[in-house]
């Protein structure tokens, strides 16, 4: 992100797709404030953040995949699978919590690895790979559980999603979910500043140039899928803790998170956007849904709004990039030595 040097730069920043999301977020918050200023009281705002945390964590994971030039549609199903796996394996036993958490991390990484290998080694478009993975997970979980999730989560498992540091002045409770989300965000920002992060970005921008510079483009992309699988695991732990076990956990989350990332100005196809903006996009989506609640609009409106946002955000970004003189013709990413 460019450093700001004056009001003109500020305006320019606000108009670029990365800056726009922060402006949008401010507008939504202002609107909520007008309707209900109590929303911003410490405890209620913390509760809102707690609810938004899983989507923000998922947005960070999805960001890595999108910025490297792919998609991960399997995250919603993976979140659902993780919650169901946790309930079934823990089955209410406190002592099983930690081993099961390790199993979940392993499973999340495995799904990411499979997605990554199929996409890079077999050269299946990630859209198809992860759509397939979504269906495989969805079906396998239902087969395994016979349709309804069984077992139960332990109290300590649910701590991360439900509890927090109590008795904090003004805020009341600082939820663990918020702390985890902030840690994930900070980690993601730092990771994007490393050589790995820069190569990931360059691979999404021009994989041929990155490859000729000696980058292991495929390895970087597989790593992005691993990070996405890991973020879905964390999100699953938070959602399971917060909302408990049901067969519908995670349904449709992949679309919400892609909407969020796109709203954050991250360009589909890769090479552009910041992880902070992607997470802000997730926060903006959650804020928008809260606004709908405040306005007493039906929750069934959400998918329609999400659809409209994803089209509008991509169209907006495309228009800005297509302005004469602002950009060189997009370089095809299919230039392969053959």
């Amino acid at each position: 992100m460019t450093r700001l040097r004056g009001p003109v730069d500020l305006l320019r920043w606000a108009a670029n797709p990365t800056g726009t999301v922060f402006v949008l977020l401010a507008v939504i918050f202002a609107w909520i404030f007008v309707l209900n200023d109590a929303f911003f009281a410490g405890p209620s705002f913390m509760a809102f953040l707690k609810q938004a945390a899983p989507l923000m964590v998922l947005a960070a994971g999805q960001y890595f995949v999108i910025v490297s030039g792919n998609f991960d549609l399997s995250v919603g199903a993976l979140v659902g699978a993780q919650v169901v796996i946790a309930a079934r394996l823990i089955d209410g036993e406190e002592s099983r919590t930690v081993p099961v958490l390790l199993v979940m991390v392993g499973f999340g990484l495995l799904v990411g690895l499979v997605n990554g290998l199929i996409t890079t080694v077999l050269k299946v478009q990630s859209f198809i790979t992860t759509l397939g993975m979504l269906l495989v997970l969805f079906g396998a979980i239902r087969l395994w559980t016979g349709g309804a999730p069984t077992g139960g989560l332990s109290e300590s498992f649910r701590t991360a999603g439900r509890m927090g540091i109590e008795g904090v002045p003004v805020l009341g409770q600082i939820p663990w979910a918020v702390i985890i989300m902030v840690a994930v965000g900070a980690g993601a920002i730092l990771l994007m500043r490393t050589g790995f992060g820069r190569i990931l970005m360059a691979s999404g921008d021009n994989e041929r140039a990155a490859g000729l510079a000696g980058a292991r483009v495929d390895a970087a992309r597989i790593a992005a899928f691993l990070l996405s699988g890991l973020s879905a695991t964390i999100a699953g732990i938070l959602i399971g803790g917060y909302a408990g076990v049901s067969a519908q956990v995670g349904d449709g989350l992949e679309f919400t998170v892609i909407t969020a990332v796109v709203l954050g100005g991250v360009v589909l196809g890769g090479g552009r956007g910041s992880v902070l903006a992607a997470m802000a996009g997730a926060l903006a989506i959650e804020a928008l849904f809260s606004l709908f609640n405040q306005m007493a609009l039906p929750a069934t409106l959400r998918p329609t709004v999400q659809g409209a946002i994803i089209i509008a955000a991509v169209a907006y970004a495309a228009r800005r990039r297509a302005r004469p003189g602002s950009t060189a013709p997009h370089v095809s990413a299919t230039a392969n030595p053959s």
């Binding site: 970005m201 360059a202 921008d205 140039a209 990155a210 000729l212 980058a215």
Partner: peptide, 16 residues
């Protein structure tokens, strides 16, 4: 097509 990641900064390209 082969030398630059056009959307990245001068710095990012120079250290690629």
């Amino acid at each position: 097509a082969e030398g630059l990641a056009l959307n990245q900064s001068v710095r990012a390209n120079a250290r690629m």
